[in-house]
Write a protein that binds this DNA or RNA. Structure first.
Lengths: 155, 155
DNA sequence: AATGAAACTACTGCCGG
DNA sequence: CCGGCAGTAGTTTCATT
């Protein structure tokens, strides 16, 4: 499943991870490669599925969503149908940003966004607690978040 | 703190959230706006801090990192110095992708990436458990993850 | 807010190692 | 197979109206 990614590819991915808007030409100049060569490498990484696309970095707070909460959810009943039903229902809630199926103390981890705490309480009571099969839930309110280079620093 | 974002801006953000590589011209054509008008709106959103940039979507598995683990961390001692020390130390671990300071049962949530489970055990024992002030930890192994439109669907 | 111009960027062939 | 060169189409970016 792994793909051949050499040191030059990693350098490109590192640079793009820092700023995904940079052009192939600018990247190539900085690392002694021509613009088409750099561009073809990026394209190859996309076709290989390593680079799956570019996502927006939005400031939820400035869009009026001041509260982000992580919710660990334990299902009361865990048949295959329960998982499917739960996922179908939870993905239909607009305030849910991310649905993670996990192994451990909880079955799902949700990233939920709300305008403020009263709004979050509404989502929790009316949307989440009424989901099919929901058992225990545990909430963590986000104070601050920092994203690091991650695997590209390790690789 | 909130910024004026009208329905057209939201439509642009929604379209870009679906595919961040689309050009201002293509977006404008699709929604009956000229290319410069669309481009100026995007730029205004960037200057207002609503649109903070673009991030890469990487397939960690294809880069050789097959295991993603979420780790809830409770600190044993929670003075201001403890928080600073912990954050400084944890951000230096290359396998740590995201550091979230949260309120609730745990103090921090970490997103950690490793090549496989033995590799994760190494990170956990040698890197995480030796961090200054670490108390209880709780791990969740990621099985699958789905990102939804989120606030743009709700807004 | 549209138009037009200048610079830049993405993308395609073709050729050399 | 990978990189450089040259060329075209499309995009950004800015000045002007």
């Amino acid at each position: 499943m792994s793909v051949e990614v050499d040191a030059t590819d990693l350098a490109i991915l590192r640079a793009l991870a820092a700023d995904a808007t940079r052009s192939a030409g600018a990247l190539g100049r900085e690392m002694g490669l021509s613009q088409p060569a750099t561009w073809r490498r990026i394209r190859r990484l996309e076709e290989a599925g390593v680079l799956k696309g570019r996502r927006l970095r939005l400031d939820a707070g400035r869009l009026g969503f001041g509260v982000t909460v992580f919710l660990g959810v334990k299902l009361a009943t865990k048949g295959r149908v329960s998982l499917d039903d739960f996922e179908r229902a939870v993905t239909a809630i607009p305030e849910v940003q991310v649905v993670e199926h996990v192994l451990g103390l909880y079955d799902y981890r949700l990233r939920i966004i709300a305008r403020d705490l009263p709004d979050f309480e509404r989502v929790l009571r009316r949307r989440i607690m009424t989901l099919p099969g929901v058992g225990e839930v545990e909430a963590n309110v986000l104070l601050s978040e920092e994203r690091l280079p991650g695997p590209l620093g390790a690789a």
